[in-house]
Design a protein around this nucleic acid. Structure first.
Lengths: 119, 119
DNA sequence: ACTAGTGTTCTATGTGCATAGTACACTAGT
DNA sequence: ACTAGTGTACTATGCACATAGAACACTAGT
């Protein structure tokens, strides 16, 4: 995985894990890689990997059993919170961004969206 | 202006100035505030303000006359580059974000956009 | 010449991020 | 008991960011 500069790596890893949760790749209760394996998987330092789980646990995204490992939360409500939060953020960023470009009504935004081709 | 954490201030100021350029608030050749005045306007350190202009000059967004001040570029083509770059980035972020949420075709994205109400 | 207003450069301090390396504590299985 | 695999904690280093403060170089106007 490639990381953007000017953005903490541990936050980008958390975003990727959240994305995989929403995508169904990480079901509730699923065991996450060990701190050391996560470090290998993302090519980051074990301390940074540890921070990923520490921050995720504080967000109630996962829980830890000392000596056993770290596991995705078993609460389905958290999944819905992540999903709705990501959707709202994505839509809000788009709308404000397009407004800054002069597209003030949704119909104008839709026209730009339909004309958009990824490269 | 409020700054997000986990994102360099000087980059956020540059983004704001680019936004104001595209919005027509800063026409080509317009004189920008002095380093010290910019620091006051955005409530940042003069050194950070200096960095804003230094980075902007490297991006050809402005030019500097020592002893006179810093001025917005006089090249209209730069404006179009900024505008198209911001538009492309905004659209790409939206499309990839929505795809991560399971909306793979544009019609589904449009439905979400139309249902979106800002709070 | 003088002054005020510019950008520029320098040292110094503090913080957060990321890395490297080591050591410790807990759990399950043998 | 022992071992392997887990999370945790600690020191240390390097870098980018942001701030504070001071000094210098240039330009326009007087």
């Amino acid at each position: 995985m490639e990381f953007e500069t000017n953005k903490p790596i541990y936050l980008q890893v958390i975003e990727d894990i959240k994305r995989r949760m929403v995508a169904g790749e990480l079901p509730p209760g699923e065991k996450l890689p060990s701190v050391r394996d996560l470090a290998v998987a993302y090519t980051i330092n074990p301390n940074t990997a540890s921070r990923v789980y520490r921050e995720m646990e504080q967000m109630s995204l996962c829980f830890t059993r000392r000596g056993l490992g770290t596991f995705i939360t078993e609460d389905p409500a958290v999944y819905e919170q992540i999903r709705s939060g990501m959707a709202k953020e994505c839509l809000a960023n788009f709308v404000t961004g397009m407004k800054h470009l002069g597209y003030h009504d949704k119909q104008a935004m839709i026209e730009q969206l339909l004309a958009f081709q990824e490269n």
